[in-house]
Design a protein around this nucleic acid. Structure first.
Lengths: 338, 338
DNA sequence: TTTGTAATTGCAAGCGCTTACACTAAAACT
DNA sequence: AGTTTTAGTGTAAGCGCTTGCAATTACAAA
C-alpha cells in the first residue's frame, strides 16, 4: 500500500490552478461569480487532484451545514422507512443531506441525539411525534434550530408539524369495527408512555367505545413494544380471558402481523373466528394472510411535505405551520362483520 | 421567542471559569491531565452556560471525528436492520457514533455517499458486499480510510470483511431442496448486477443444481428487486411456464414473503402445491404462513464483529482480517418433501 | 533555603474553508 | 476622453476547537 500522500486541500487546488483560494471556493459554490475561463481552469485542477471539500471546515466557515438531522424511534421495522425515504429524496433534491439516528423509543437517548446532531451543525431537525420534555424544546429554541415534528399533527401549538390525527383516525376505524357488530374488542397498543402516537391511537379506540355507550372497564388493553413477537404473545394472553374478544385492534401493523401469525398457530381462523386490525398500512399489510384491515397513512407525502416545511423554515421563507394530512381506512379481509 | 443569544463556545467557558481554552478542552477530553479543583470549576461553567462542543471544530482540530459511516443498500425493509442496530450499539459502547445513508442499490449513489461521508470526516466506513468499482477502493486507500465490508466474506483479498459465504450457504439449502425430491426448481433472485450477495446466492443454487447432474438451461431464473411486490409478480410469471416448478427458491425472505402471499391469492397451497424458500431469516420469516424455510444469518453477531474489526483497524491495533461466520439452514413448513 | 522533578496550565499555531472588503480591469456610460 | 459601473479576483480575518511546547506552580529531596 502506498503511503497516503497528503489529502488535497483548497490551497492545493488554488496553487495548481494559479488562483486564490477565494476563487476556488467560488468555483465550487457560486459558479456564476466566476469567469468561464477560470472556472474551467479550476475545475481541471480539482479533477486532477481528486479534491473533495472538507465538510467540517466548510460547515464551520459558512456557519451552515446543509445537513438535516432526523431522529426516528426505530429502524428495526418498516414503520418509518417509506416516509423517511421520501423525506430524504426531497432533501437531496434541494441540496440538503440527511443524517439519521434511532432513539430506540427512549426519550433520554433522543435528547442526547438531538444534542449530538445540533453539535454536528444540523441546520434543522425532523422529530417524530410531539411528546417530549419541555427542556428539549427550550434547548432547540435557544439554539434557534428549525424543527418539524412528523407523524403527528398539532394544530394549536407553536411547533411546526406534518402528520395526521392519530386519535381521530383510529376512532374512525373503531367506529367501523363497532358498526360491523363487534362488541368484544380487545386492544394491543404500543407502549403509551413517551409515545404520543400510541397514546392517541389508544384514546381513539376508547373514544369510539365510549361514544357507543360502552364501559371502558370492559375494554381489555395490553401495552407492548412494537414488535411482531410481542404482538404474538399479547394475543396469546388476550385469548385466555373469560370473555373471548371477537376482534383484536392493534396499535400498528407490526403488532397485527404478530397476532395473525399466532392466531393461526393457536388454531384460530382469521377473520372467521376472530378479526384483526392494524394501523399504518405498511407494505406487509396487504401480504399477510388474511390481508390486514388498517389505517392507511400517506407516508411518502408526509416525508415530502416535512422536507419542504423544514427547508422553508431554515431558509426563512415561512412561519411554522401545521400540516394535517388525510388518512383513510383500508378495508381488507382480516376484519369481518360479526 | 427570545432572540437567540450567542451559542456558548469554549472561549466563553474559559472566561467564565477563569482558565485558558486549553484547560477547558482538557477537562472535556482528558480529565486526568487536570487538577480536580480546576475540573470542578470548569464543569460548573460548562453546566451553567449549557455549553456543547462544536463538533465540526473539534473534528477539524483533532483530525478525527469518532464517527463511523455506514452505507447500506436499503432501509426500506428489514434486511440490514438488525445487523446495523448491533453495529451501532457496539460503536456507541466504544465511544463512536454512526452515520447511516442508504444507496438504494445504486453503485453511483454509493460512491457519492462514500465521498460524502469521507468529506464529513468519518474515521472509518462500513460497506455492504464487495463488488464495486476499483476506483472506489483506490480512493479509500489513498485517503487511508479504514473500511470493513460486511454481509460478505472474502478470505483472500486485501479487504477487511465480516460475513458469511453466500454461495456456500445457498448451495447448502439447494442441496436440501434437491435431496427432498424436488426436480423442478425455479429461482427468484435479486438483481445480480452490482450486487455480489445476490449473484453468489444464485450461483450457489446453480452449483448444487449442476452438481446433481442437471442442466442449467432447465433452471428458470427471474431477477427482480428485493421488494415484496416484486416477489409476488415474479411468482405469477413463473407459474405460467409449461413445466410447473415444485419449489420456488428466493434470493431473500422479502421476495419469499411476496411469493407466499401471491401463491395463496392464486389458489396454491404452500407447501402442498408448491414449496418456497428464502434467505436471511428476518423476523418476518417465522411469522408468514406457512413459516419460511430459510438460511439463518447471524445478523447481530455480524454487526458486533464488524464494529470491533473496524475500531481495531482505526485504532491501528490489527491488520485487515476476514471474519467468516457460520450460517445454518432453518427448516420450516414452507418447504416440503415431494 | 535551594534545587530538581513532576504535575498543571497557558500560549499560540494551526485545522480547511467562506466571505466582507479592497482592488483591478474591462465595459458602458456622458 | 473622462467617469461610472460592473465583473472578476485577491487579501486576510475569522469559524471553534486541539495540542506541542513553554512557562508556571507544587512538592519533595538535598
Amino acid at each position: 500500500m502506498t503511503v497516503s500522500p497528503r489529502i488535497p486541500t483548497l490551497d492545493d487546488v488554488a496553487n495548481a490552478a494559479g488562483v486564490s483560494t477565494a476563487t476556488v471556493s467560488r468555483c465550487l459554490n457560486e459558479k456564476q461569480k466566476v469567469s468561464p475561463k477560470t472556472l474551467a481552469k479550476v475545475m481541471k485542477a480539482v479533477e486532477s487532484l481528486g479534491y473533495t471539500p472538507n465538510f467540517n471546515a466548510r460547515a464551520m466557515a459558512a456557519k451552515q451545514s446543509h445537513t438535516i438531522g432526523a431522529i426516528i424511534p426505530t429502524m428495526e421495522n418498516a414503520i418509518f422507512a417509506r416516509g423517511l425515504q421520501a423525506f430524504q429524496e426531497k432533501l437531496l433534491e434541494q441540496g440538503y443531506n440527511l443524517l439519521v439516528s434511532s432513539s430506540a423509543y427512549q426519550p433520554k437517548l433522543e435528547a442526547q441525539q438531538i444534542r449530538e446532531l445540533v453539535a454536528r451543525g444540523a441546520d434543522g431537525l425532523l422529530l417524530i411525534g410531539y411528546e417530549r420534555d419541555e427542556a428539549v424544546y427550550e434547548y432547540l429554541a435557544r439554539r434557534g434550530i428549525p424543527t418539524v415534528l412528523a407523524w403527528a399533527s398539532i394544530p394549536n401549538s407553536d411547533h411546526a408539524s406534518v402528520g395526521f390525527d392519530n386519535r381521530a383516525a383510529m376512532r374512525l376505524l373503531a367506529d367501523r369495527v363497532i358498526e360491523m357488530g363487534h362488541r368484544q374488542i380487545a386492544v394491543i397498543s404500543g407502549i403509551v408512555e413517551g409515545n404520543d402516537r400510541a397514546a392517541e391511537r389508544l384514546a381513539g379506540i376508547q373514544d369510539s367505545w365510549q361514544a357507543h355507550g360502552f364501559d371502558l372497564d370492559a375494554l381489555p388493553v395490553i401495552q407492548t413494544p412494537y414488535e411482531i413477537e410481542h404482538g404474538a404473545s399479547a394475543f396469546e394472553r388476550l385469548v385466555q380471558a373469560d370473555v373471548k374478544p371477537t376482534v383484536i385492534m392493534c396499535g400498528n401493523d407490526v403488532l397485527a402481523a404478530g397476532v395473525i401469525s399466532k392466531a393461526r398457530d393457536l388454531g384460530f381462523i382469521v377473520p372467521n373466528d376472530i378479526s384483526v386490525t392494524g394501523f399504518d398500512d405498511i407494505e406487509l399489510a396487504k401480504h399477510v394472510f388474511p390481508a390486514l384491515t388498517t389505517v392507511h397513512v400517506p407516508h411518502r407525502q408526509m416525508g415530502r411535505v416535512a422536507a419542504e416545511s423544514l427547508i422553508d423554515l431554515i431558509e426563512d421563507r415561512t412561519k411554522k405551520v401545521s400540516h394535517q394530512l388525510d388518512v383513510s381506512i383500508e378495508m381488507r379481509a382480516s376484519l369481518q362483520r360479526i
